[in-house]
Every structure is written in structure tokens, then in C-alpha cells.
């Protein structure tokens, strides 16, 4: 049995070499239960190979990997796992309902449970109107949707989504975000592989920047939001005295072209600063705490060459 105290994912020095090429160098990672964890990296960083090692599709050259407290690839652990591959493909002569039934049976689910579950899932991914079509008539986005449905079939404790929004229109992307949120709300752990930073920023609790199969940095995104320590204020009638007077909160204040920029150790002091400026006679048009976007951070950490 898997225990809820076990981490969802735990790897130590995971390495994979294909021929002479190192795909994953040294992956050490802990993902707690209930987290939505983003795996961010440029193309060829080893994200998909890492996920495949965790799922037992690819065998590591060295290192350890556990999911839900069991060795990666363990058959019992897989019964609590859902997986959407990067390019979901399946027998194209099946209808979506037949596909889900087959996968449900492979999960060992009963006919009775599947009879209820399949229509619900088809509705969730927006495929109810296409339920009688064969997969060969499906677009890439529709295949991605049915792939997502099969990944959720068994109410998994751990869900691997490898580039889940590829091929999806904006509605589909929104659907994926909502589904990830719903999974988090019911306590599932989600590992999201993506190179779309905005998507990760919106959905994930924590991210790992990965390059050349190594975790360069792990960040909590909530913490990221709190680090809004650069402030831009659009203001008029700001005098040199006023700027000097800001020294009690910050040493970096600069005023130029109607823009006052400074950094603060904590955003909690921002209202005081604004009150001071107003009482000193400045006209305030906009107060905008500046946030280092995930993209900027990603480029800083991974390198602007994208690891190529």
C-alpha cells in the first residue's frame, strides 16, 4: 500500500544516457502530496525523459526514483497514477467512449463504475458531442482532450501531464487549467511538464527549472508573488527633497520623466510611502509593484540561449 505520508515523487541522482547522449544528468527532486508542481525547461532539457523514468517507461541508467512511496514503474503504484503523454495517440478505430472503457478496464475498474464515469469525463473535456466519432476523425486538440480524460479516469493520486495544452485552443487551455485546479482541490498531486511559462505561473504551486537534465532551481510561486519589491509610481510634482525624504524606506529611489522607481524590503511599507508622497504634495497617478516575472527568472536561471 502507498501511505499518504510518502512524498508523491522522490528522486535521487536520477540519470539517463541514451547511447552516448546524456538526456538526464542528475535529477534530485521531492514533490509533496497535493502539490501542483511545474517542470520547466527548454526543449531537450530532459523533462519528458524524467517523467518517463518516473512512470517506468524508460529505465534509469543510475539513481533512484519513487512515486507514492513505491519504486518508479511499480505496477501497484501505477494504479493510482494518471498520465497524459506529450503526443497522445491511440487506436484510431475506437470511439472516445470505447477508448475510455478500454483504459478503465486496464485500470481494473468495474463496468458499473465506468458506465457512470465515462459520460462525466467526456463532458468534462468537452467531447460529449463527439462521443460516437472515431478517433481517426479527431483533430490534434480533440485527441489531447480524450488523452486528458483517460489520465483522470481512475481518480489518480498522482497525475503526470506532459505538455497538456499543446494543440489546444484558448478554451481548451482554460479547461486544462480548471481541471488542474479541480484535481488540486481534491488533493491530487499534479506534475505539469511545460515550456509555456505563463501556463505554469498560473497553475503551479512550485516549479523546478531544469536544464540538461538537472534541476537548477526550485521556486515556490507564492513566494515569488511576495517578492514584489520593486515599485514604480507614476507621479507628478515630485521634488528632489521628496526623493531624498524617501531614504527612510529605500536607498534606491530615482525620479525621471514622471516615473518614480525604488525598491522596498517589504510591500507592507508601500502605503506609508504613498501617504508621505501625497502629504508632501505629489500627484499620484499609478502605483505598480513590479514583479520579476517567471519568464525573466527562467531566462536568468536557464540562460537566454535556452540551453541550446
Amino acid at each position: 500500500m502507498t501511505r499518504s505520508s510518502d512524498p508523491a515523487i522522490r528522486t535521487r541522482g536520477l540519470r539517463k544516457v541514451f547511447g552516448g547522449k546524456v538526456a538526464v544528468r542528475n535529477l534530485t527532486l521531492d514533490v509533496a502530496r497535493g502539490e501542483v508542481f511545474g517542470f520547466l525547461g527548454p526543449n531537450g532539457a530532459g523533462k519528458s525523459t524524467s517523467v518517463k523514468m518516473l512512470l517506468g517507461l524508460v529505465f534509469p541508467t543510475s539513481g533512484e526514483a519513487e512515486i507514492l512511496g513505491r519504486p518508479a514503474g511499480d505496477v501497484k503504484a501505477r494504479s493510482k497514477v494518471g498520465f497524459l503523454p506529450e503526443h497522445f495517440r491511440f487506436y484510431d478505430w475506437l470511439t472516445p467512449a470505447e477508448l475510455l472503457k478500454l483504459h478503465g478496464r486496464l485500470y481494473g475498474m468495474s463496468q458499473r463504475v465506468l458506465r457512470e464515469r465515462i459520460p462525466t469525463l467526456l463532458y468534462l473535456v468537452g467531447l460529449t458531442p463527439h462521443r460516437d466519432k472515431r478517433l481517426q476523425e479527431f483533430s490534434k486538440g480533440m485527441l489531447q482532450r480524450i488523452g486528458l480524460a483517460q489520465a483522470l479516469l481512475n481518480d489518480p493520486e498522482l497525475i503526470f501531464l506532459d505538455e497538456p495544452t499543446s494543440g489546444l485552443d484558448p478554451f481548451g487551455r482554460r479547461m486544462v487549467r480548471d481541471i488542474i485546479k479541480a484535481q488540486r482541490d481534491r488533493g491530487a498531486t499534479v506534475l505539469l511538464n511545460s515550456h509555456l511559462l505563463g501556463e505554469v505561473e498560473i497553475t503551479c504551486d512550485r516549479v523546478a527549472f531544469i536544464k540538461d537534465g538537472e534541476v537548477l532551481e526550485t521556486r515556490t510561486l507564492e513566494g515569488e508573488a511576495k517578492e514584489q519589491n520593486t515599485v514604480l509610481i507614476r507621479a507628478g510634482k515630485v521634488t528632489d527633497e521628496m526623493v531624498k525624504g524617501l531614504a527612510q524606506w529605500t536607498s534606491s529611489a530615482q525620479y525621471e520623466g514622471g516615473r518614480l522607481v525604488f525598491s522596498l524590503s517589504s510591500n507592507a511599507t508601500l502605503p506609508e510611502v504613498v501617504r508621505y508622497l501625497v502629504s508632501a504634495g505629489a500627484d499620484i497617478y499609478e502605483v505598480a509593484p513590479q514583479r520579476l516575472s517567471l519568464e525573466e527568472r527562467f531566462l536568468q536561471v536557464v540562460g537566454s540561449d535556452g540551453g541550446m
Binding site: 517506468g56 505496477v75 498520465f83 503523454p85 495517440r89 491511440f90 487506436y91 481494473g108
Partner: peptide, 14 residues
């Protein structure tokens, strides 16, 4: 080659 097997091989079936 097509990756179709991935969806099957990750199910709890040896």
C-alpha cells in the same frame, strides 16, 4: 515508434 504504447504501458498491467 508512435508512442501509442505509452498509454497502455503506464496502466497497472505488467
Amino acid at each position: 515508434a508512435s508512442g501509442t504504447i505509452q498509454a497502455v504501458a503506464t496502466k497497472p498491467v505488467p
